[in-house]
Every structure is written in C-alpha cells, then in structure tokens.
Design a protein around this nucleic acid. Structure first.
Length: 357
DNA sequence: TAGGCCATCTGGTCCT
DNA sequence: AGGACCAGATGGCCTA
C-alpha cells in the first residue's frame, strides 16, 4: 500500500523514505517477524558493533518484538557474536513497540522544546536588532550580521566613553561596519547618510587608523549637529526597491550625549527602543500612507542647521541597491556642530539613561 | 542556478 | 529519565 506513496513523485524524500521503510515493516509485521533489513544487518554486523547498538541506532526501523521476546533475541545475538567477549555497561535494550512509542513521543517533545528554544533565541535577536543601528522591520539584518553589528556598536560606544570625545562620524561608521558584509555595510552607511563607497575607500586607505585596539575616534574638523525634525519638516527620499527599509530615528544617543536633545523620543512615531547614535530623522510615510507600496519606501530627512546659507536646510539622498548613489557625500555636506560635554559624569548618566529608556 | 539564510529535525553530551 | 544546549544535516525560500 505504502509503495504507492513511494512512487508518488510529488512526495518529499523524507516521506518517501518513510513509506519505503514502513512498507517493508508492514509486510514483515504480518509475518510476525522483524524487519528483513534488520536481519540482514544482523548477519553483517561489523566488529565491535552489537545488536543493541544496532537496534538503538535504528530505533525507528526495528519493529520487532514483544517484551517477552527480548531475552531470546538477546541470547541469540550473543550466539551470533560468537566468542567475542561480553561488552560491559548497561545492556542495550531492544526497542519494543511501546518503547518506540515512548521514544517517538520523547523525540516530538524534544523537537518542540528545540523549536521553542530557537524561537526564544530569535526573539532575543529581534530585540537586539532593535537596539543596534539600522533597525528595519522590513529588511532584517541576518543573525550573524546582527551579532557583528552589535559587537561593533558596543565597541564604538565604549570608544566614545573611553576617549570622552565626540566621535568623527566617518570613523564611527567605519567602526560599526567593521567585518560586516557589503550589503549590510551599505545599509548601515545608508542609515547614517554616508556614502558607503566613499567610506569604504577611506577605510582601505586608512586601514587600522580607527580600529586599532587603542584607537579612539578622530575628531573631525567640522562639527555635526543632529536635530529631530517634525514630520512636516521632514523631506523624503526614496530607496531603491531592493533596499526597502524603515528605520528609527537615531538621534537619541547623539542628542542625549551631546546636548542637542530631542524633546520626544517616545513619540508614537517610533515603535521600538531607539538605538544608535545616528543622526537621521527617519519619517515613516507608511504610518500615514495606506498605499501598499509604502512597505517598499522609506523616507529620510536630515536637518543641517549649521550648513552654509547657500545650502538648503534639508537634504534628500537617494540610496541605490549598491549603496548610496546620490553622489552627495556626507563629508561634503554634513555640518558638524556637536557640543562636547566636558563633564564626563553627566555623559555616563545620559548614556545610562538612554539604555534604560 | 548557485549561494546565503533560515527553520527544523536529530543525535550526542552534559547536567540535575 | 528528562531537559538544555549544541552542531550537523536537510530542505525551502529568496536573490543576484
């Protein structure tokens, strides 16, 4: 009967395997014998391999046996093994139907626990994604990239605390992106409104400059101001469709650290904890837009309050799938106007407050 | 189509 | 015995 299933091409291999095996056992059950497969293997037992270990490893395949038959079969096995010395240790008990059933249930329970465990792990990873730079609901960082970015982020924050200096944005991004894949690098750089290619070029030129074990972030010659725009102030730019992304506003840390505090980080506009010291005002058009396309677009807006008067106060950047393609380089357009805290204690407090918000 | 990522199953090991 | 944890295997899905 089950061979019909076996011949069904649409069946997945696992089912086919099971069908094949079950068919054999079905026939032999009718004859009240153990699987011929098992019998064949008995005859060809390798040295050092016991019947017990065989039936253990093939627990699902061995349907033979009522409890009372166990003794006989085990004796028979000993005979089959000839003069080989008895193995020490607990006897491997033959799988009975009842034992198989228990084993099956145990396995199912273990699978369920393992699933739950992995789900817990994944939800923890999701939480981690929310607190590292570049959080996006639509384009999640992979697990490994999340961990790498988190490590870099911790390192970057530690450097900020250690040096007590306001980090250079480029160096900051370089630190964040260290060891990340190109797509993730583009993503992170995009989140920070940096031209990924630009910064990677610098990274190549300045290899080791920012990442040495004793390095601290170089001070950039110009300052950078972060400020959060209201939704009406925000102007938008559209990502390439392959890079659909929504991002949180990342001004929180910078603002809280460097005194340009945004008044309302807990706005309903943002549905998760704010993460990194990025200075991007992400405005989610999807929150107001019912169009199905909203999932594919996200909007950035930046505010350069210290830009020269010839520049607009807002700037739109267009990101492409290979990184930023706007040709607008952050180093050229961003104006830095961060106010360094000279008092370290408040800085720690603010950072602490940020993490406990 | 290859490669990356992921979920799931599974058996092994360690611990309680 | 059973649970937690781990790593390997496998197959599905997606994207370049």
């Amino acid at each position: 009967m089950l061979t019909r299933l076996f011949s069904e091409p649409s069946l997945v291999p696992e089912v086919q395997k099971f069908a094949s095996w079950a068919d054999e056992c079905e026939e032999e059950d009718d004859e009240d014998e153990s699987c011929s497969d098992t019998e064949e293997r008995k005859g060809s037992l390798q040295e050092g391999q016991t019947e017990g270990s065989l039936s253990e490893s093939k627990e699902e395949g061995d349907l033979a046996g009522e409890e009372e038959e166990e003794e006989e079969e085990e004796e028979g096995t000993e005979e089959a093994e000839g003069e080989r010395p008895k193995k020490r240790g607990p006897k491997k008990r033959k799988m009975t139907k009842a034992r198989m059933e228990r084993s099956k249930i145990r396995r199912q329970k273990a699978n369920a626990r393992e699933r739950n465990r992995m789900h817990d792990l994944n939800s923890a990873l999701d939480n981690l994604r929310k607190v590292v730079p570049c959080y996006s609901k639509t384009q999640k960082l992979s697990k490994i990239e999340t961990l790498r970015l988190a490590k870099n982020y911790i390192w970057a924050l530690s450097e900020i605390l250690r040096s007590g200096k306001r980090p250079d944005l480029v160096a900051y991004v370089q630190t964040l992106c260290k060891g990340l894949s190109q797509p993730t690098t583009n993503l992170v750089a995009g989140c920070l409104q940096l031209n990924a290619r630009n910064f990677l070029t610098e990274q190549g030129q300045d290899a080791g400059r920012y990442h040495g074990p004793n390095s601290s972030f170089a001070m950039h010659p110009y300052t950078f101001q972060c400020s959060r725009l209201s939704s009406t102030q925000c102007q938008s730019s559209t990502m390439g469709s392959s890079h659909s992304l929504r991002t949180h506003a990342y001004c929180a840390t910078y603002d809280s650290l460097y005194g340009n505090a945004s008044p309302d980080y807990t706005s309903s506009e943002y549905d998760g904890p704010l993460s990194p010291p990025l200075c991007i005002n992400a405005n989610f058009s999807l929150k107001q837009d019912s169009s199905p396309d909203h999932e594919k677009n996200y909007h950035y807006s930046m505010h350069y309050s210290a830009l020269p008067s010839s520049r607009p106060s807002g700037h739109n950047l267009v990101f492409g799938s290979s990184g930023m393609r706007s040709g607008v380089h952050a180093e050229n357009i961003l104006s830095y106007d961060m106010h360094l805290h000279h008092d370290r204690a408040p800085m720690y407090e603010e950072l602490n407050a940020f993490f406990h918000n």
